[in-house]
Design a protein around this nucleic acid. Structure first.
Length: 347
DNA sequence: ACCCAGGGTTGGC
DNA sequence: GCCAACCCTGGG
């Protein structure tokens, strides 16, 4: 039972933010409910309070269908948790949860100033209405974001989201909360960098063991069983680098250009994926992930329909939008999807 | 069975 | 710097 609660007063459309297909993480568990004939959207997931000994907390966010100016949060601990066994206070826990939620949903970002900026550009102005309340959905786990972004390359949103969920369910730590009032009470974390070192990537590796039992065990450790295909090798090699060479946290302290160079060293990480990791994983607002769609949109809006390269698209975005580059990318992508502009550009 | 596309990356010239 | 080849899976 969720008895602890917090309230947030910020402009945000939770549903839109959760469902906008951002690459940082799979959407949280969704269910809707009714309260005096008003519909409520509820999203839940587990977050780890890393400043409080990685204490796992089940978070549930609730927002009325038509209220984009506030949402409620309630949370719960694992059944065997006893606060008096720890040295933490409720106040500390509340603060830490609040900080993480502010970070994940980028609540410190001034949306209204951004909307003013968009409105002053007639090409961007229409996106405000389509995307009202859309915010960045920043990863709560940077490593997950890196793997998830590698998985997204040359893949479809539906497929890579499914793969990531499967990775979590297969190797992630399981958290089982009490079932009272909650439809879903089982959640999974994301496997650690260390876990990835033991994964197989090649199906031939399974047959090195003649024992049938081992074969099954090995299959369970084969990344490809999660449908990631050839990206398995990238994931494994990248996690080796993240263990031995590149410090995940350190990248966050770098200047954007240095961070871009560093994260690009990972196999399977090209310019587009690097920018996704930096934007959705680290919150580098000046990153401008340039994929085929953004390329087409920018070409159409700012280059008279003459298709420019992805590299040039990125340079244009960084240059033209500055610190709003990441948000501009998010809004343009979503606007193009929703408005039918994408279908038009495809032809 | 075949063909194609998916919010790209890699390695070749 | 450009372009083809390419790695897989799921849907038509």
């Amino acid at each position: 039972m969720m008895h602890n609660s917090l309230k947030f007063n910020s402009l945000i459309n939770l549903k839109l933010t959760q469902e906008s297909g951002q690459t940082s993480q799979s959407p949280w568990y969704y269910e809707d409910s009714l309260k005096s004939e008003s519909r409520i959207h509820n999203y839940s997931d587990v977050i780890l309070l890393n400043k409080l000994g990685n204490l796992p907390v089940l978070i549930k966010l609730s927002q009325y269908e038509n209220d984009f100016n506030s949402f409620d949060l309630s949370y719960d601990f694992l059944p065997n948790f006893d606060l008096s066994d720890t040295c933490f206070s409720f106040k500390e826990i509340n603060n830490e949860i609040k900080n993480q939620i502010i970070n994940i949903f980028n609540l410190d970002f001034d949306l209204n100033s951004f909307y003013k900026f968009l409105s002053e550009d007639e090409k961007l102005a229409p996106s405000v209405e389509f995307c009202n309340g859309l915010r960045l959905f920043i990863a709560k786990n940077k490593f997950e974001c890196i793997i998830s972004s590698i998985c997204s390359a040359n893949n479809s949103i539906a497929r890579w989201t499914k793969s990531i969920s499967k990775i979590r369910e297969t190797w992630g730590k399981e958290y089982i909360f009490s079932k009272e009032n909650e439809i879903n009470n089982i959640f999974y974390g994301f496997p650690k960098v260390n876990d990835f070192q033991n994964f197989y990537i090649d199906s031939n590796e399974e047959y090195e063991n003649h024992d049938k039992k081992h074969k099954i065990d090995n299959y369970k450790r084969n990344l490809k069983s999660c449908g990631v295909g050839y990206r398995a090798e990238y994931m494994k090699k990248s996690s080796q680098l993240l263990l031995n060479k590149i410090d995940i946290e350190e990248v966050g302290n770098m200047e954007y250009s240095e961070a871009f160079k560093t994260i690009s060293e990972l196999p399977g990480v090209g310019p587009k994926v690097a920018d996704c990791i930096l934007l959705y994983g680290y919150g580098f607002m000046e990153a401008f992930p340039s994929d085929v769609w953004i390329k087409r949109i920018i070409s159409s809006l700012y280059f008279g329909g003459n298709e420019i390269s992805a590299k040039k698209t990125r340079e244009f975005g960084i240059d033209y939008f500055g610190d709003y580059a990441g948000y501009a990318q998010l809004y343009l992508f979503h606007f193009a999807r929703k408005s039918g502009l994408m279908d038009k550009l495809k032809k």
